[in-house]
Design a protein around this nucleic acid. Structure first.
Lengths: 218, 218, 218, 218
DNA sequence: AATGAATGAGTATTCATTCAT
DNA sequence: TATGAATGAATACTCATTCAT
């Protein structure tokens, strides 16, 4: 292989660098993060760092995309449940709350990286393109899961599944956003309750509505 | 007084500077925005620019806060409607969709400014503190409006008004976020539909549910 | 007169400004001293400050020259004693030790002002010219006083009075210099003893040598 | 190693930078010296310049200390003479006049650097501390040399060797000071004569007194 | 491939000086 | 004259990126 045994494979190095980047950002902010520091923390030289990432912006774009890919793994794991359509939809929603739980602590750095990366046209295009596709795909998965429930008679057949799916995604994004500066209020439980409240609008699944934790008690 | 008549009062200068800052950012990104350019575009000298804003970070924090204050004016105007509790809640929701409509075009710069400003501990504290308070206050206003409808019998009395209010805010935040990179899908109409879907969970106001535009038709 | 009664005469303002300049320098160093601060401390506007001094360098050159003029007043007062030539020479030497006592605390700022002022050709010329004349004149006064003692038979007639006078001045300068960073060792008493040691070389005035405090006892 | 052969070792670079700093100062004054110019003249990049000196003030403090270290080398060379105590003291005094000869041309820049460096508390401390130690050590060396002569019977045993040593140092400082603005009068010969005049006060070494050049003839 | 010394473009900020009132 | 807001030139320093070894 093309790896130096004592330093780990390229994939290992790459992920050491990404981790280091995140840690340095937590200390110094994204703007203030120095490539020297990242390289030192990842135990590679600057030359090696630049073999993996073309530029500082490239590196931080990668940390953002990495977060999303991690969230994808979380969702996929949660969705892998077997069962009836409603159960599978619930698995999906569990996955989304899991994403909030997993990413909340990193949202501060995440948004900083975004702000810095989005400032450069070339990277903005790549970032926005990625986000656009990511959200559209997640939306479609949720929409399809809702449709499955509709077909199974669990939800009103005339409801706009796509619109509900966008609502679900918006709730997740809104809670992630809020988690950046108000971790107290933006909890996975709160998000789950919001999901349930929204889905109750899909009635007549009264049984499901009953599960709507926080929303049930004034 | 403290102003030179031909150049406008201090308040006018200040807002000229903020506008200029926004425009320069749209061209060059927040990181890439140069204070020289901002000053030139605002037709003030750099010395004067620094009389109003202590630093570049201070200036961009101000643009963020300004956006929120503008959104507040939009909400307040929309909420000033007279009528029964339900009508007043709808006014409030109209205000929130108005916020999306007004701020969407600026969200790119807004998040960039955030990312850059939040990188400095001192400014992060000020920014996060402001956002925390802002969202909490808006949440309370919405919660109170929901409670008024509950008291008037328009919504189920046992629903958790505060949780629903947080859901409303999260939807707004989520749509604003999405608008940054996918203006097509994050529309005021979509947001309004999501609000309605969420509120339908507050039933039994069947009449209201009927108004839930997009969510009604697959 | 041309003065505004409530603010004092021009001469008073001028000296308020010079005092303020010195005080600000003690706080912030000469480079770091801001004209704003000086003006504020002197209770005049910047415009007025610039009526008295053409520039910052001009102001600090003035503080230097002022110090020398003050030292001149000290010397003149001490020299105004009546009596025989030896007594008058001793008065002069007392004056010089008085200069050390008076200026020592200010030497730090004094040298700083020098360093900054001497950096500009135009001001360097004025400063160096002033210093050159000042030292030459003081040297001549001392030389003449020594010659008077020589004529009166108090000192050897064949000694080079001018050279001894330069030695006296060099001792004063050397002690002033040392006082800048080592106030402990550069005392007026030490200077007086050095004067006496030097003059003893002018013998055969054994009586005078007896007065040479510190130099007499190992 | 850490040096690129064609550009010289680190020590060589360092001294190239110090020389360049001095030359730039001679042209533009210390305040007016630009780091870009210094780097260019030393044929290193600004980044490299800053690898050797943390800041402009650090660089100029180094030029000052370097001057003193050079004077130390001059003194040590002159003191390395063999012979009786009197001859060794004379060697020391020759060394001191050599310091005047060597440093006189640089005193203008030297005092400027001092003035600028002493304006910053942090650097003032370092500079003053260095000067204090330097002068104290030189003083002790001279004192010891005088004592050796006393023991050998060349000087009066009851004279205060330490006080005479301080006088010697003060004369050197005074002549260096004067050389800054009046090179004509502050000559090594004048200094030597002043030393001799002072030492004559240490009598009864009549033979030595006879060597007191300028001081002997009106 | 790896290293890390060298490079030098790039900019926020200050503050002496001016001048309209 | 007095004021103090406005001006804008001027520069130390950083740090992403390169490239000789």
């Amino acid at each position: 292989m093309a790896s130096t045994p004592q330093d780990g494979s390229d994939a290992v190095k790459r992920s050491r660098i990404l981790e280091a980047a995140l840690e340095v950002c937590e200390r110094s902010g994204v703007e203030g993060a120095r490539m020297d520091e990242v390289a030192a923390l990842a135990r590679v030289s600057k030359g090696t760092l630049y073999r993996f990432f073309d530029s500082k912006h490239d590196l931080f774009l990668a940390t953002i995309i990495d977060s999303y890919e991690e969230s994808l793994r979380i969702i996929d794991t949660a969705t892998a449940v077997e069962g009836d359509p409603l159960r599978r939809l619930e698995g999906l929603l569990d996955g989304l709350t899991g994403v909030l739980a997993a990413l909340a602590p990193r949202m501060g750095v995440h948004y900083q990286a975004w702000g810095v990366v989005a400032g450069h046209p070339q990277f903005q295009e790549r970032l926005y393109g990625f986000l656009c596709r990511f959200h559209a795909q997640r939306g479609e998965e949720i929409r399809d899961a809702i449709r499955d429930v509709q077909r199974a008679g669990g939800f009103r057949a005339d409801a706009d599944a796509a619109a509900f799916a966008e609502g679900i995604m918006a709730l997740l994004s809104g809670f992630l956003y809020r988690a950046t500066f108000d971790r107290e209020r933006a909890t996975p439980e709160g998000l789950r309750a919001a999901f349930d409240a929204l889905l109750r609008g899909l009635g007549p699944d009264a049984a499901h509505a009953g599960a709507a934790g926080g929303y049930g008690h004034g």
